[in-house]
Amino acid sequence: MKVLAAMSGGVDSAVAAARAVDAGHDVVGVHLALSRMPGLLRTGSRGCCTIEDAQDAWRACERLGIPFYTWDFSERFQEDVVDDFVAEYAAGRTPNPCLRCNEKIKFAALLERALELGFDAVCTGHYAAVRPGADGALELHRAADDAKDQSYVLGVLTADQVAHCLFPLADTPSKALVRAEAAERGLTVAQKPDSHDICFIPDGDTRGWLAERIELEPGPIVGPDGERLGTHAGAQAYTVGQRKGLAIGRPAADGRPRFVLEVRPKDNTVVVGGRDLLDVDRITGIRPTWAGSPLPEAAAGHWFDCELQFRAHGEIVPARARQAAGDDGAPRWEIEPAAALRGVAPGQSAVLYRGTRVLGQATIDAARNARLAAPAGA
């Protein structure tokens, strides 16, 4: 099989490419240049796509004896990931840029070009698995190592994309074994730190970075009843579940902390309240996609049992869901967790599972708190 190996410059992608070579595939390595002005060096585990990463990817390919290329995807990355990130925050939502990068760059732009060039699959160092289902169609599944499982950020993959994915690290029990294998193979990235945080905000100051790109204006901080409690510096800089940085200046009546319950960019308002008001019992997801064959009961509009995850490495909870049409006629998912959840914010991705299988995902458009939705006196 002719395989294009996406080489990030890290240990996972290097070992994944090595295993693809060992499996007898015809492998070509490619590093994606995602920034027009990359930093010369990483700062420990912060940042990626730097000149150092490109050099590490090249060295790995040299060691493996496979061709190496660098493809400039910086313009598309800026439009589909960075600009989208800013637009989502400006609209009062909390996006996941890693998930969007997988959707738009690594498994859309990259895979599209790979297929045009005659490759059969794209190989990456993601911790996830592709397995045939009962109907013979390929499905996306969790990896063997729960601590490193990345199926959540791959939940945006479509059935067609899953069919062209190769994840050689799927059954590896731990990251320590991957590093040990890299060392045995003489790969210089064996002990290279993993990258963390948002790659295009290497200093980790998301609020400061957004403040340079979104026009922030002071506005009211109000309680659930509309009482004005303070003033914020810009509603778009807040996210649901946030506790720090409210600067209200006076404690709640019960003396307990307040949290951001809702961000209203249209009237530049931040709503805050007690922790219990963060509880969510119903989620509406838009732009749903299936990572394999849709469930028959879902196609018929019936409720189906599943498990829900709404943040990377977050808790997995039992739920039920159904596919329905929104007011605009577009498909959406209605999801009801078996127990109330906290910290659910519009813009996040709700990824549905059945056992280890990834069913698919939808972008959270609304999350209902039963107490806030109930009529007065109920």
Rank of each mutant, 00 (worst) to 15 (best):
Y152G: 05
V156G: 07
S195C: 02
R36F: 04
R282N: 03
I105F: 13
Q161R: 15
D80H: 10
H164Q: 06
N369K: 02
K192Y: 03
I316H: 05
E262N: 11
L138A: 09
R322N: 01
I198M: 11
G29W: 00
G343R: 05
R258S: 10
V15L: 08
L359C: 01
T43S: 08
D205M: 03
R59G: 04
I66K: 00
L4I: 04
A163I: 06
A23T: 07
G186T: 03
Y238Q: 15
L278T: 05
D53A: 06
R275E: 15
Y69R: 15
D305N: 06
E334Y: 07
F304R: 12
I316S: 14
D120N: 13
P375E: 11
A16K: 00
I316N: 03
G329M: 07
D26N: 14
R19E: 09
P220H: 01
I201G: 00
I316V: 15
C61R: 03
D305A: 09
I198C: 04
L308E: 13
R100V: 14
R354F: 10
A147H: 11
D22M: 05
E75N: 04
Q309V: 12
W303I: 14
A340N: 08
F259E: 00
G10E: 08
A370C: 06
P173V: 05
G314Y: 03
P220W: 01
P220L: 04
A176D: 13
G377T: 09
A235T: 00
A20P: 11
G292Y: 00
D84V: 06
A291N: 14
Q242H: 04
F73C: 12
S74Q: 07
Q309N: 11
V81C: 12
L111W: 00
R42N: 09
R213P: 08
S45C: 12
A147F: 10
P193I: 02
E315F: 01
Y127A: 08
A91S: 14
P67K: 00
D365T: 05
R258Q: 06
A374I: 04
R113N: 12
A211I: 01
L4Q: 01
A121Y: 01
A319H: 07
L166F: 09
G301T: 14
P97H: 13
A91R: 11
E52S: 04
I286E: 10
E139M: 12
A121V: 05
E307C: 13
D254W: 09
R332C: 12
T94P: 01
A57N: 00
A312H: 15
L34A: 08
D26C: 03
V317H: 11
L117S: 13
L111V: 11
L277A: 01
A159Q: 13
E112Y: 06
C98S: 06
P224T: 03
A60T: 14
A134I: 13
K192C: 03
A374V: 09
E181D: 08
R264A: 13
S8W: 03
R282S: 13
L4G: 00
V122P: 07
H164D: 02
Y89A: 11
G241F: 02
R332G: 02
A14Q: 01
